[in-house]
């Protein structure tokens, strides 16, 4: 069945059942492999993308739920001011180890900073609790979110 999706500012037609999780359409049909697979159950956050500006787990989000809404994936995260700040803080602090979870971490961090420009540690903990990192980059994720927030504050 053909559906139209709005992804990273483009409209694309996809041929898939409406209950197909967005993740597999992104990865398998559209070649947007930045969003990862980690659990398929909404437990790890490596598949996080934005739908209408909100972070969602693409592994659990059926196509039917995102039709007509604007979807942003990690591939376009750098097009926004917050996304750029987050990416550069991530690089400056060397957050990534294997890097596999980081697309999801960054998408969650961008959403956090959009809603809460100067988050406290507690707010970071709450917003990032759904994103697992087996390599253990959590301390640097916290620090990088603070750094991105500071950069956004200082260079409006």
């Amino acid at each position: 069945m053909a559906l139209t999706l709005h992804i990273n500012g483009r409209s694309v037609d996809v041929d898939a059942a409406p209950d197909t999780p967005l993740l597999w359409v992104l990865r398998d049909e559209l070649g947007l492999t930045g969003a990862k697979f980690g659990c398929g159950m909404g437990l790890c956050g490596v598949c996080t993308v934005h739908v209408a500006g909100e972070p969602v787990r693409a592994c659990l989000t059926p196509l039917a739920a995102v039709q007509g809404k604007s979807i942003t994936t990690i591939e376009a995260a750098g097009e926004g001011r917050i996304g750029r700040a987050v990416q550069s803080a991530w690089l400056a602090l060397g957050v990534a180890q294997c890097g596999y979870c980081q697309a999801g971490q960054i998408m969650s961090a961008v959403a956090l900073l959009r809603a809460t420009p100067q988050p406290s540690d507690d707010q970071i903990d709450a917003a990032m609790a759904g994103n697992l990192c087996r390599c253990g980059t959590y301390p640097r994720i916290r620090a990088a979110i603070h750094q991105a927030a500071q950069q956004l504050r200082e260079t409006p």
């Binding site: 947007l32 492999t33 930045g34 969003a35 994936t73 990690i74 591939e75 995260a77 750098g78 990416q87 991530w90 690089l91 060397g94 990534a96 890097g99 980081q102 697309a103 960054i106």
Partner: peptide, 13 residues
Amino acid sequence: RAIDGADIVAGRA
């Protein structure tokens, strides 16, 4: 600078 850092944060790795 990490050799793969920029690719990782852009989802290209």
